[in-house]
Design a binder for these strands. Structure first.
Lengths: 333, 333
DNA sequence: AACGTTGATTACAACGTTGTAGAAACCTGA
DNA sequence: TCAGGTTTCTACAACGTTGTAATCAACGTT
């Protein structure tokens, strides 16, 4: 049996509002009244109805984090940091796995948002700026690169410069035939485009030509896609001496394919990834990668959202860039 | 600006209830009226307020999945299956990462539950049956082993027999000094206890003695813990020729530690895990493991919850066992 | 003794939605 | 034309909570 304020009030012999005042920590309640009410609350195991409270107050104390896929470890790790940062604001975080499809993402940005949650931290894959422009209501912070100069606050890292740096590192190891894995032509592939641009820029910096045949596409960025792309590269006869994979799961797949082909990493082929997921610190060999500051990303996003909620609803959207660094390990030391 | 039924009603020149009827697909609405209302809805970009609807109807169409940690890939993979299975019931799933602490888990089972969601699929780590007994309100399905014969529906796998089978497989490979990694003495370690029991049973079946020194504890079940435990085993001078790790991330850590110690897998030491996460299909070497049928687990849990919600609230709790199989790969072929 | 001040409590309305019950409009067939 | 039935629509109340404003008691001050 669920109890209501009314039940507690009757049991304590006070008005409904007094119980509400006790529940909400209102100052002017006599100690003995407070005690009576608190006892009644305990006896009935009363807990407030969040729907009703939300209807009345317009706030639930719950925010959502919407990500495409939780089994891409980057998002899982990011989720942990968001949960931690949000806890400092007294928020509960619910995570919405969208799957990355446009329809589901639209639903995430709307459906869930309809007053069940106060705000949304959203990492979209398929949604365009136009899609998002239609969603006035819900305070939102965007993560990632998809929607540049969209209508909402935005936290990102400098993908181009990060990709350029890690590619330059491969060049610095003396590699000359550097492949890239993870290119995407679809509009969803904003990160892919930026990372490819950084890769190309680094090659140009080094006076190395851009060879179309060294660039392997990958529809999704899972391990299997990385392994398949690596195999395709090897089969095609181009002989890379290094590979820059656009995320770490691709790179782990590539490591596996190289292993199966009997090639040594890093002696024959150096491998670098992007994301710095935990797997890469234990893989064989361990993985060199770009390490975005996930904790900072999460904190910036949560703080932006807090700002939006507390104060300046109408303020112009802000774009913040979180730092990154290179984490150099065995696969490209 | 957020609009309400009232705004739509005024614009379409009908009553509030008629708009509500259109929104809810009520049959007896004249086509032209319906069209007028739908146009008004579109023009105002109206979307219903879920809090209000929930307050009125007692249902939100949202369920939650509460898990200890998303960056343990097992839970991330499970989450994907739960999201898929729930979609067939028209439910949205929000994921609550509890962190595994008793206070946070209690909050997950209550706080979120307070009418924002219709039901909960809960994988507790720290909560006892007594804790859960106090939570009458929310329909709940439990996953995992922690609370046996608790007050709620329960989906699990047969941990003892699974551990026994995979250990027996190691025995079948001719291994005689089989270590175990992941033992826990705390009350939270229910899975650990069951898997250890299965391990011991398999040793007994084979006439092998149970050697305390071959059993390594691990506080958490992350890669780092597995690597540390493996190093401790090697340092202690016991020379295992096989290791059964109580989950796959432990096993991946162990693989790494063995690699660093210059030992070959499986030639010198065979390694087996538990969970069948995607990493294990791409690690070097690939990982032999127990593969619980995650899809089935998710589906059973969702269906149990659906039953609970639709019909027999008061029915006695049910316990269902999902199947598992062995996935044999390079690390213990 | 009358007064204002402060503290403690309460009645009422409202948040946006939908179920109930009933009114209004529309048909059908005599 | 009208009775009788069916379809379409609406008024009202209620879900559980909290903000507002009002009431009441207790107090110290003139």
């Amino acid at each position: 049996m669920r109890h209501r304020l009314k039940d507690v009030a009757e049991r304590a012999g006070v008005s409904v509002k007094t119980v509400s005042n006790v529940v909400n920590g209102y100052q002017h309640v006599r100690p003995d009244t407070r005690a009576r009410v608190e006892q009644a609350i305990a006896e009935l195991n009363y807990r407030p109805n969040l729907s009703a409270r939300s209807l009345r107050k317009g706030r639930t104390g719950v925010i959502a984090l919407a990500v495409p896929e939780l089994d891409i470890p980057y998002f899982a790790e990011l989720a942990r940091h968001v949960v931690t940062a949000a806890a400092e604001h007294g928020w509960t975080v619910l995570i919405d796995q969208t799957g990355g499809g446009p329809e589901q993402e639209r639903k995430a940005a709307r459906g869930i948002g309809d007053h069940l949650i106060d705000g949304l931290i959203f990492s979209p894959l398929a949604l365009t700026a136009a899609d998002l422009a239609g969603l006035d209501g819900l305070p939102m912070v965007l993560l990632g690169e998809r929607v540049d100069h969209g209508p909402a606050d935005h936290v990102m890292i400098d993908n181009v410069s990060a990709a350029r740096q890690i590619t330059a590192h491969l060049v610095g190891l003396g590699r000359r035939r550097i492949a890239a894995i993870g290119a995407q032509r679809t509009p969803e592939g904003a990160s892919a485009r930026l990372r490819l641009a950084g890769y190309a820029a680094a090659l140009a910096d080094a006076g190395l030509g851009y060879d179309e045949r060294l660039v392997a596409p990958a529809a999704a960025w899972h391990r299997a896609d990385g392994a398949a792309a690596m195999r395709a590269l090897l089969d095609s006869g181009v002989r890379p001496d290094a590979v820059f994979c656009f995320n770490d799961t691709l790179a782990l797949g590539a490591l596996r394919a190289l292993h199966e082909a009997g090639l040594r990493v890093p002696e024959d082929v150096a491998v670098a990834g992007f994301d710095d997921i935990e797997d890469g610190r234990f893989s064989i060999p361990t993985l060199s990668t770009v390490a975005p500051d996930k904790e900072r990303i999460a904190r910036l996003a949560v703080d932006l959202l807090a700002d939006r909620l507390d104060a300046d609803r109408g303020a112009p959207p802000r774009e913040l860039v979180a730092p990154h660094r290179l984490a150099l390990r065995e696969s490209a030391p």
